[in-house]
């Protein structure tokens, strides 16, 4: 029925077409690992058996694409989704302040901080890799270098996926998709170069630098402004310093405004947490679109 492993994987993908692309990618990676190992074992024992015959029996034991697809769907359904919202406040006000209890909001905030660091690294890696590979192409070792670089991009995309899933709660692949095994390295390089996914990953790495910087600047700014607002009463009544300085004269805000400053700072941060949660979800969708090959 299936002459090659690739055919089985295609059928599996087809059987899972309504499932999450990340789950499909995982299922394919598992099936590829199992079928290759099983085929190897059969070949060692009986080298004269044809690949198609051997595969028939192996797949009989592994399960048809439909059976395998339903097994994955079943387990995924039972596994608790990552970062499920722990409380579900009903009113709009409850939702607004409930953001402090929502792991997705804190996750998004942490992700934005980390994105600043990873963004710089991705950008440096991408720019160095591309320029080194391209400029060394006139020498013979430019090609293997390009291959190594493109493979590293795939690896980094997987790592970024894990980060996105852990902090933003968007399902991403947990297994790399090895679609080029058994190829000669020149063919492998060609396959990587013509694969749209590789280029999308590379673009993502560059864009991440810009986004990471923006996230970082915005977080630091809003956090300092909110804290500064809340610090005004302390500054004035404990340290006896006027909060505003104009023409070398310090002015103090009247005492009755203290609650307003504290409330203002708190509200500002709460609004920002809500926005961060939304941006985190958007970023998760963006990452999925860029990093998960359809």
């Amino acid at each position: 029925m299936f002459r090659t492993i690739e055919e089985y994987l295609d059928a599996l993908k087809n059987a899972m077409k309504d499932a999450d692309p990340a789950l499909i990618q995982d299922a394919q990676a598992d099936a590829r690992e199992h079928l290759t190992n099983a085929l190897e074992a059969v070949r060692e024992k009986t080298p004269e058996v044809s690949e198609a015959d051997a595969l028939g029996k192996i797949i009989e034991e592994y399960g048809s694409p439909e059976e395998t697809a339903s097994a994955y769907r079943e387990v995924e359904r039972r596994t608790s989704p990552v970062l499920k919202q722990t409380v579900k406040p009903q009113t709009a006000l409850g939702r607004f302040f409930g953001v402090y209890l929502d792991p997705r909001a804190w996750g998004a905030l942490l992700y934005m901080f980390i994105a600043f660091i990873t963004g710089i690294f991705y950008f440096t890696w991408a720019v160095t890799g591309v320029s080194l590979s391209v400029s060394l192409l006139i020498l013979i070792f430019g090609l293997p270098l390009a291959l190594l670089f493109l493979l590293s991009v795939r690896g980094l995309a997987l790592v970024e996926g894990r980060l996105v899933e852990a902090l933003l709660g968007v399902r991403m692949p947990r297994r790399p998709l090895f679609s080029h095994q058994g190829m000669k390295w020149m063919d492998r390089l060609k396959a990587l170069l013509t694969d749209k996914a590789t280029w999308l990953m590379l673009v993502y790495m560059v864009v991440q630098f810009v986004l990471g910087t923006i996230y970082f600047v915005v977080i630091v700014t809003v956090l300092s402004v909110s804290l500064a607002f809340m610090a005004i009463p302390v500054l004035q009544s404990v340290f006896h310093q006027g909060a505003v300085m104009m023409n070398n004269v310090r002015y103090s805000f009247p005492v009755w405004t203290y609650p307003l400053w504290i409330l203002g700072g708190f509200l500002l941060w709460t609004i920002f947490m809500n926005i961060a949660r939304g941006v985190g979800q958007l970023h998760g969708r963006f990452a999925k679109w860029m990093l998960v090959s359809e």
Binding site: A31, E33, H34, T36, N37, Y62, G63, E67, V75, R78
Partner: peptide
Amino acid sequence: KQGTLYPVLRSLEENRLLESMVEPSVSGP
């Protein structure tokens, strides 16, 4: 079916009852 083992392994790992690591093999993935 053997194929049903893999998603279970994965979910056990997700619940931290198992841990896993990837090692290259001589041939194949």
